[in-house]
Amino acid sequence: MTVAVNSVPAPSAGRRPVQWNTPLTYALALAVAAVSIAPVVYVVIGGFRTTPQIVDDPAGLPDPWVWENYYRVLTQSGFWRQAFNSAVVALGTTLGVVVLGMAAAFVLARYTFRGREALYTFFTLGLLFPAGAAILPLYLLLRDLNLINSYYAVILPQVAFSLPLTIVILRPFLSAIPRELEDAAAIDGAGRLGFLWRIVLPLSRPAVVTVGILAFVASWNAFLLPLLVLGDVNLHTLPLGVQNFSSQYTTDTAGVLAFTSLAMLPALLFFTLAEKQIVGGLQGAVKG
């Protein structure tokens, strides 16, 4: 790596080097970014072509650009219904995780009682229970509970499997709230529950947003559990919809491209809006 040797910055007093061999850095960064998004761009642009165009020249640009595929997917497929189902399931999961996780983490962080550490260990054990391995018995359990083909069949297990990580993230955060605040709340006549509601909840908004977003994204992208428990087409979520559309209309390549890019859109939008929380949340989970 002889190029890099030139990059040794001259030690300058007080000021850290900001722009070492910028051209090389930019070239590499551009290459990395291109590899990351080229396939995505290809799919989005491919949606503007017609299937004959694609068959003719698989790697070409739209000529002419057609909106027809996107229009067709948005008006004639189950896209909107599936997006709605995904939203219901993801919001339900997020709400459940936040409420149950917050309540349990609050007790584990702010109460002193015998068995507290045992209870915490009990929850953290769940980090070692992979959801993928449990999918068959989970299906049987949901069938016995008569929950197959309902939103609950996805929401409840997703909440359960998200709880361990949620509690692991929330607990240290809640522990760090100064005792003085709790004492002050007590003096003002608030019980511990009042303290939770009026002080802890507002203070822990960043942490709650983090666990909420992590749960939301995981739920939004989930495939295996919905595949098994949502047989009813009307309940299908977007990942199921993408998979079905692509296997039903194998000859309609342009349509599949359009559907796939539309399915990516909410995730991309969401990520652009909440990038700090998503990335920060993942990073925080690791640091904790």
Partner: peptide, 10 residues
Amino acid sequence: FVPYVLAEVT
């Protein structure tokens, strides 16, 4: 980060 955020299915 984009590839990581997209659903595995997509």
